[in-house]
Design a protein around this nucleic acid. Structure first.
Lengths: 106, 106
DNA sequence: TATATTTGCAACCAAAAGGTTTCATATTAT
DNA sequence: ATAATATGAAACCTTTTGGTTGCAAATATA
């Protein structure tokens, strides 16, 4: 069982669940209504998301409300940080190219 | 074959490859040297990354240099955008809490 | 108390993933 | 021309994934 955050968001159903409960906490039944699969299949996805702490539960009687653990989402952002520098470089290079074009126009 | 960007970065080896070639373009052999698996296994990962256009090839004689397609990486960032608003809200709420504590101290 | 509802868990199954070995092809070097 | 090198592709195998159905437990309702 690898069960890291990148593996968690690899599945399109799980990404949809994340987006769904980002707005507001929902019960498994309510979540499952949005998908074309059994409640149990959705439940398995919720289990995986819970295991890697991307979502959290709140028990209320016999119902369980699932909501997004937004802090964990930032880990993906953190991983992307190492590439932002490259984006910036590319942007700056584009900037140089653009100003060169400008100069030549004059 | 799903082969989308989220499925591509789900595998730790592929994430490592991405990080490796982000710095500079590399040949499959050079890339494979960094992993404890056969060259062919690495080659399969390169194929998957190529198929979803996360990396690009540059042929040079019998060698092929693989490099990162940085623009594609931004798609992950774009997906994260829908959650940034929530981060901000949380941050602002924390701000309110902090200023309330400050006020009560006085 | 008996029944309905909400949920999770286990057993099972087909398909996909990730590795291996073997082989074919193209380019370079002798 | 022959041999070596760099690479990709195919066949194969094991494990993981993502779904199913059936069942058990806890809570709410009649």
């Amino acid at each position: 069982m690898r069960r890291d955050i990148f593996q968690a968001i690899a599945d399109p159903t799980r990404r949809a669940i994340i987006t769904l409960i980002a707005i507001q906490a929902m019960t498994p039944n309510a979540i499952a209504d949005n998908f074309n699969m059994t409640r149990q299949a959705v439940s398995k996805h919720l289990r995986i998301l819970t295991e890697c702490e991307l979502i959290k539960q709140e028990h209320q009687g016999r119902e369980i409300y699932y909501s997004l653990e937004i802090e964990k989402m930032k880990e993906i952002d953190k991983w992307l940080n190492q590439f932002r520098e490259i984006w910036e470089i590319n942007f700056n290079q584009l900037d140089i190219v653009l100003s060169t074009i400008k100069k030549n126009k004059k």
